[in-house]
Simulated assay, not measured.
Amino acid sequence: MNLDDGASGGGDEQYGGVGQTRTRLPERGGDVYGGARRGRSSSRSLVTVVGVVVLLIAAIAFANRGGGDSSSDSGDNKPNTSATAASGSRPVKSKSADIPSDFAHDQQGAASAAANYAVVLGSADMFDKRSRDGILKTVIAPSRVAGFEVTLDKAYTPEFNQKVGLNEDGTTPQGYTFVSRTTPIGTKLTAFSAGKATVAVWCSGLLGLAGQNSTNPVTSSWFTITMQLQWTSGDWKIVQHSQTEGPSPVPGDDRASSADDMAQAVEEYGGFTYAR
């Protein structure tokens, strides 16, 4: 289900076509941080959705699955890396409320804007009403801000906060570290004109509560966000957003870190500003 606060919905480009891989995974104990491999938890799915809802593509419900279209445009199966290769230019000129802004009015600027917006809309700041409203005013087209605020206020409820391990008011329980991060892996421009652009951003995400005895330990997920951007007031702004699951790699054999290590990493490692 796609929500765009009243805008007409646009279909996501579907992703798929991974090859078959046989992997032998070792058996492990049951400790939630250092032991058994976990599937995506219900809280991870819910906030993937709120990352989804975050951009208005779904109210608290599972994100739409991408299809299995594995066709290619040519017989050459080599990946095309030029879409996200470094250009040598500087599309990000400044920041507004600590969010990159003043992107270049070209394809590079649109791709950079989409990647940066994916990061901030998947951040822990979205769980705080004041921070969330500030983010929306910065990255959303002015004519759509009010609708986005209404949609997200209905999504970030006390019940939802509890489901992801937070207190009802969205604050983090004492002794725990709340983690919500989105990391762009690559971008793909699917449409572009002087005033509009559609960009797909392949992402990985972290979500959960780091701390001893956490019932919502930090887990990872993979998803693709598609943003429709509009050039307005001298910058690229979001007018519509949707999300699909994957493409997801085969999980590796890395042992999960301890709760303390995860909390320390989140506190010590800052995020990035993405610019092509």
Rank of each mutant, 00 (worst) to 15 (best):
G175Y: 03
G67W: 04
S193D: 14
S70F: 10
P100L: 08
R22V: 15
V18Q: 13
E168W: 03
D31E: 13
G271Q: 06
V52F: 13
T187S: 08
V119N: 01
P91Q: 05
D76Y: 10
T219W: 04
P251W: 10
A104Q: 01
V266R: 00
G68F: 08
R38I: 02
R255F: 09
L189F: 01
V54L: 11
V164T: 02
R144A: 02
T190P: 00
V250F: 01
T171D: 06
V145N: 07
T81H: 09
E267I: 06
Q20K: 14
S87I: 04
E268V: 14
A263R: 04
V52L: 14
L152G: 00
V47H: 11
V92N: 10
T183P: 02
M227S: 08
E245W: 12
A200I: 03
V250T: 12
G186V: 07
L229F: 09
G186H: 03
W202G: 10
E27I: 13
S180C: 10
R276M: 11
Y156C: 10
F62H: 12
D260Y: 09
G34L: 11
G175N: 02
K188F: 12
D12S: 12
Q240T: 10
T190A: 09
K154Y: 05
P173C: 00
E159V: 13
T190E: 05
L136Q: 08
A256W: 02
A141R: 03
G195H: 08
T273I: 13
A256F: 01
D153R: 14
I60K: 07
S42M: 14
G51N: 11
V199E: 06
S257D: 13
A113D: 01
